[in-house]
Write a protein that binds this DNA or RNA. Structure first.
Length: 819
DNA sequence: CTCTCCCT
């Protein structure tokens, strides 16, 4: 951004109102388009506010590059070095001093600040920049900050800066009365051309055609092409390199080493460049010299699949906000042109889904547990974590031993949360000490968390780095950092051997991805999913593997990275597998129950042997399982009556009576039914059991008496007959039903009621032919208003039955006039 | 046969 233009930045006119708003309120929304100058002008202005005196302001930036840049720009404005009034903090790099009052931090640092000091002492306010990007960590940061502000720090200022106009969503968390200040942005004019291509043309050839068109334009300088993925990039780069254009061609994507990425951002001295990039160029990096953008309008995004805990990559159309952001890249430094490889009529959704709605939430779930919240409902979210992904992350964290059965953080969890790694790798490091393999675990974690892509053999890749660390500077830095945290000195050369603990370490981090041989190249994973390696892969015939990097497809998953492991190691590692679990299954072929003892890990059976004799306990469990699969046998009419009665009673006298819902009863079969099953071996024996008797027996004698009084199963009609009350409707919240012949009800002035008179029954008055004549919960009104009409109609049809004029004083009867 | 970012 040219410094000369500073005084005319669009944000200038809003600085006073921003300052005024934050003096009066503790929350503010600032909407500003790129180029408004918000990132650098707003924080410095706020530093002079009364409420910030003697305290710090924290500015959250989503990326390291942006954080460093913002800090040095602001420091320069104050004519100071970075680290004096303005500083920054990020992983492995920080410049802050005793006088620093404005700290520019990246997301992980903010999370740690909040977790380590929930009072946020010395912090006057937090500014969330680029909040529209909606990363999980920014969402978490805001949720935790709001929690702090609401509970103990109402003086804490929170300001959300965003480029999108989706103010309604922001207000839903910050409060509808939060002020909104809007600033225009500034970019050079950009012409937009639409260049749709037909479905029989490949994306790369279409892109190639449009590159040709752009290069023919005399005004065009460097060209940025945005494609969905590496495969498309590689193909287009090849086509361009084989062409006769006098251009410099470079690829740009996150899988490239940092040095290569940086090289792709720099201007070439003499030649025009065509940069073929993923969405990384949309917001993460700025490519110099570009005034032409060619946008395929597609993005490839990982979608988390809660059922398997795997991620699936899908290619889809970008949202309008992204498309406009991509186009804006053509007008950062001068007027530009944008070619869109779709038609102007093509509809695009307005905004993208936030990351929290579609990503793996295990890291988030761990942070929420560290915060001390039992469930996400205890915090305020702009987009709450979806239930499926949340449950899946809870299950993984329990399997890793980070959470206990009640969902609370375990000691291992506390220890693991301190590693700056995803939960899987953090647990691996926390446990590595017990294997005497901490240095190796650090080296492995640095390799797996790093963004350089490892292909082929993980063992080879690790061995290569261990023997020549200097060739892999990024990996070496990360390894050193982790080893420092573990208080190990990085040896001049890491020990080459032994690499044996490698598979153990991986199995600690990926327990759900242990795979068992099905056929060459095909494995069943512990999460139940089938995953494949190519048949020629060296591990294709292993009995057990740990699949480290797996991408899910519709039916089967593809394994990119795996290591072999032995059965003995698995049994050694997973204590639960050491118990032989008796399993009884019904064999259709043999027509009998078969007993097996198995060592299970998730969906895998690591080992099994047939049992000659079945234990009573195992048979009982098999029968209970069968009953759960065929619950209709259990919930017969008599049981349903009891359930209905209990539902009615519980709805009036809550918390006193037990839960007899279907799910509660199925979950507690062990308690209330199993004791009566001793010696039973067949399902047919169970079906004949008087379940309702056993259910009643779970109540004490006093409770039974009370229960019978509240919900009598029959009621005495004026005719002297007992009529049964049907409580099944109570299961769905409706009142109980009493059906009886109309003539039996003569003399009943008011509707009879149950539950100490709280609930009048619904009376079905029947004709002599047992057809319902009237359904009423208000008998008195029926006698007065409805009965005369019914009488007129029925008297002729059933002359033998009494149809008195005054039913209230008439003698009730079950029979005809004269027997 | 692989989107992207981040952590005391």
């Amino acid at each position: 951004m040219p410094i000369l233009a500073m005084s005319t930045l669009p944000i200038e006119q809003h600085l006073k109102p921003i300052q005024a708003a934050l003096s009066a309120h503790n929350r503010l929304i600032l909407i500003a388009q790129p180029g408004a100058g918000k990132t650098t002008r707003v924080p410095l202005t706020l530093l002079n506010s009364q409420w910030a005196q003697g305290q710090k302001i924290v500015l959250l930036e989503p990326r390291r590059v942006a954080a460093r840049l913002a800090a040095s720009f602001m420091a320069a404005q104050l004519d100071e070095p970075v680290g004096k009034t303005v500083g920054y903090r990020m992983r492995g790099d920080s410049k802050v001093g005793p006088h620093t009052r404005l700290e520019v931090v990246t997301q992980g640092v903010l999370t740690r600040m909040l977790q380590d000091d929930p009072l946020l002492e010395g912090v006057a306010g937090i500014i969330f920049d680029e909040f529209h990007e909606r990363s999980i960590e920014a969402d978490l940061g805001l949720a935790l900050s709001l929690d702090i502000q609401q509970s103990i720090r109402d003086d804490l200022r929170l300001m959300v800066m965003s480029a999108t106009l989706d103010v309604a969503a922001l207000k839903s968390v910050l409060g509808s009365d939060t002020s909104v200040i809007e600033s225009t942005g500034r970019e050079f004019p950009i012409e937009t051309y639409y260049r749709p291509f037909s479905s029989d043309e490949a994306l790369d050839t279409a892109a190639y055609r449009v590159v040709t068109e752009a290069l023919a334009n005399a005004d065009s300088r460097d060209v940025l092409v945005i494609l969905p993925g590496v495969a498309e990039i590689t193909r287009l780069v090849q086509m361009l390199e084989n062409s006769t254009f006098d251009i410099e061609v470079c690829a740009l994507h996150g899988g490239m080493p940092i040095e290569a990425q940086q090289a792709a951002l720099k201007l070439h001295e003499t030649r025009r460049r065509v940069i073929v990039s993923t969405a990384i160029a949309e917001s993460s990096v700025t490519v110099d010299g570009v005034n032409v953008v060619i946008d395929a309008g597609l993005e490839r995004v990982p979608l988390f699949q809660p059922r398997t805990g795997l991620t699936r990559l899908t290619t889809r159309r970008v949202n309008r906000a992204s498309a406009d952001q991509r186009r804006g890249r053509a007008g950062r430094q001068q007027p530009g042109v944008c070619y869109r490889l779709w038609s102007q009529e093509q509809p695009l959704v307005a905004y993208g889904e936030p990351e929290i709605a579609q990503a793996d939430l295990s890291k988030l779930a761990l942070e929420v547990a560290v915060w001390g919240a039992r469930s996400p409902e205890e915090l305020i979210w702009m987009t709450p974590p979806p239930n499926g992904a949340w449950q899946s992350s809870q299950a993984l964290l329990r399997q890793l031993g980070v959470l206990d059965a009640a969902g609370l953080l375990t000691p291992l969890g506390k220890q693991s949360a301190r590693w700056p790694l995803e939960p899987r790798l953090a647990v691996m490091l926390s446990k590595a000490k017990s294997l005497n393999a901490l240095p190796l675990a650090c080296a492995l974690a640095a390799l797996l968390e790093g963004r350089e892509r490892v292909s082929g053999s993980l063992r080879d890749a690790l061995a290569q780095r261990l023997s020549q660390p200097r060739r892999f500077p990024q990996w070496q830095r990360e390894t050193k950092r982790l080893m420092d945290m573990a208080s190990l000195q990085m040896p001049h050369k890491l020990p080459l051997e032994p690499l044996e603990p490698l598979s153990y370490l991986l199995a600690m981090a990926y327990p759900d991805r242990v795979g068992q041989f099905i056929s060459p190249g095909r494995f069943k994973l512990a999460n139940g999913k089938t995953a494949t390696l190519s048949v020629s892969h060296p591990l294709a015939n292993e009995v057990f593997i740990v699949a480290v990097s797996v991408e899910s497809a519709s039916s089967e998953a593809a394994i990119y990275l795996a290591e072999p492991i032995t059965q003995a190691a698995l049994i050694d590692l997973y204590p639960a597998t050491q118990q032989w679990e008796e399993r009884v299954t019904w064999s259709d072929a043999q027509g009998k129950l078969l007993g097996e003892a198995v060592q299970r890990h998730g969906e895998l059976v690591l080992a099994s042997r047939l049992l000659a004799e079945l234990s009573g306990e195992a048979v009982q469990q098999a029968l209970l399982r069968a009953l759960k699969q065929r619950p209709a046998a259990l919930f017969n009419g008599k049981v349903k009556q009891l359930q209905g009665r209990m539902a009615l009673v519980a709805s009036i006298y809550s918390n006193v009576w037990p839960d007899w819902s279907e799910s509660a009863l199925l979950d507690s079969l062990d308690v209330w039914l199993a004791p009566y099953m001793t010696g039973m071996t067949r399902f047919s024996q169970i079906e004949k059991m008087p379940f309702h008797t056993y259910l009643m027996a779970t109540l004490s004698w006093d409770e039974q008496t009370h229960f019978e009084r509240l919900t009598p199963s029959t009621i005495m009609a004026p005719s002297g007959n007992r009529a049964a009350i049907d409580y099944e409707p109570c299961l769905t919240g409706r009142p109980p039903v009493l059906a009886l012949k109309l003539q039996e009800a003569f003399g009943w002035q008011d509707t009879p009621a149950v539950a100490d008179g709280h609930v009048p029954v619904v009376i079905h008055l029947l004709s002599p032919a047992k057809r319902p004549l009237q359904v009423t919960q208000d008998l008195r009104s029926f006698w007065l208003n409805g009965y005369p009409e019914v009488r007129k109609e029925m008297r002729g049809r059933y002359p033998k039955h009494p149809w008195p004029e005054d039913p209230i004083t008439a003698q009730a009867t079950a029979s005809t006039k004269r027997r």
